[in-house]
């Protein structure tokens, strides 16, 4: 297993190199001139030239790239011109917020979509099957910013059940001491129930928004995959040897049906990372999505590069985990490497 892990990590290296190159080039071809933006609207051409020189933007591209890579190897992603902070510090502060939100949404979605998909497959053509289809279609056809606003309107404005959609904690609570950066976990570790309740309340609406969006693919794949497995020979053997329906469905069918679901999970996670940008805007969530968008609008290269790189690493890490979990589920894969 360790050898496999090591091998897999090695194979991610080319992908990472690609990401570094692409993120660098991408920010260079984007329209907008950083120097002009920071020199201000009234700046003279000389002033812009000066800023350019200061930022190193007057050098040829290979030279700029070399510098970028050298800095990167020291863990330096550059300076954000809008916040004035090192990009690494900004990401460190904001990434956990985004990760917490995305994971919360994903887990919530899994808890609803997987049982729904299983039920829909077991009782094919029944009410629950049609309900599953309706919910999934509705969820995926509503854009996240719309769902988000609708939820805020209903739960905050009309019914006043949830707190104001402003950030990760309500104004009176204080953040728990940082261990993982996830407020839910940190507050539990610190036994700070007030902070836990508050962060959960803040997380609920954006989390549900993301969950509604991601229900569809997970429920659909679970249903399709379960249907395929339920018609397989070994399920018939299990039934013919008198195993009860529950055991047949869960132990025999579902474990086999999990592989495609997990594959979809990786894709859904990347959709959610994209959807995050909008949700963070709607809920004033201090995550990396909104940070990156602001930087992009300001033609601020360094944070955009940092964001793309961080997301790529996250995605590669996730895929690595998915790959490894395949092996845990399916013994056939283990013997091939």
């Amino acid at each position: 297993m360790l050898k496999v892990l090591f091998g897999r990590i090695l194979t991610t290296i080319p992908a990472l190199i690609g990401v570094v190159v692409v993120s660098f080039l991408l920010t260079r071809v984007l329209p907008g001139d950083t120097a002009a933006y920071f020199a201000g609207p009234a700046a003279t051409p000389q002033a812009i030239e000066e800023v350019k020189k200061k930022l190193g933007l007057d050098r040829p591209l290979p030279e700029q790239f070399r510098r970028y890579v050298v800095d990167l190897s020291h863990g330096d992603l550059g300076q954000s011109l809008t916040t004035g902070q090192p990009v690494v510090a900004d990401l460190k502060a904001r990434l956990p917020a985004s990760a917490e939100l995305t994971l919360f949404g994903l887990i919530l979605s899994l808890l609803i979509a997987v049982p729904l998909g299983i039920l829909a497959a077991v009782k094919q053509g029944s009410f629950i099957d049609h309900a599953c289809r309706a919910i999934a279609t509705a969820g995926v056809s509503l854009p996240v910013f719309f769902t988000g606003l609708l939820l805020v309107y209903l739960f905050y404005f009309i019914w006043q059940i949830s707190p104001a959609p402003l950030g990760r904690l309500d104004v009176f609570a204080s953040a728990p001491p940082t261990v993982t950066g996830f407020y839910l976990i940190d507050s539990l570790l610190a036994r700070d129930w007030e902070a836990f309740r508050s962060s959960l309340a803040q997380l609920a609406l954006p989390g549900i928004t993301l969950a509604i969006f991601s229900l569809a693919p997970i429920a659909r794949i679970t249903r399709a995959s379960m249907l395929a497995v339920l018609s397989m020979d070994f399920v018939r053997t299990a039934r013919a040897s008198g195993l009860p329906a529950r055991k047949v469905v869960m132990t025999y069918a579902f474990r086999n049906a999990m592989l495609p679901v997990i594959t979809t999970l990786g894709m859904v996670f990347s959709f959610l990372l994209g959807a995050n940008v909008l949700v963070e805007k709607v809920f004033a969530w201090p995550g990396v999505g909104s940070y990156a968008v602001e930087a992009l609008i300001a033609s601020d290269f360094a944070p955009v590069q940092g964001f793309v790189l961080a997301m790529a690493i996250l995605y590669i890490a996730l895929n690595l985990m998915i790959d490894l979990s395949y092996r845990l589920i399916d013994p056939r894969l283990e013997s091939t490497t």
């Binding site: 053997t237 040897s241 008198g242 195993l243 474990r255 399916d330 056939r332």
Partner: peptide, 25 residues
């Protein structure tokens, strides 16, 4: 009652034995 009978009183073996067994158990 059928669940109780299957496998205990009457049981079945199938064509294509490899597919008739759960591949990951």
């Amino acid at each position: 009652q059928m669940v109780d009978l299957r496998g205990r009183e009457m049981s079945m073996i199938f064509q294509n034995p490899r597919a008739a067994l759960n591949p990951i158990r």
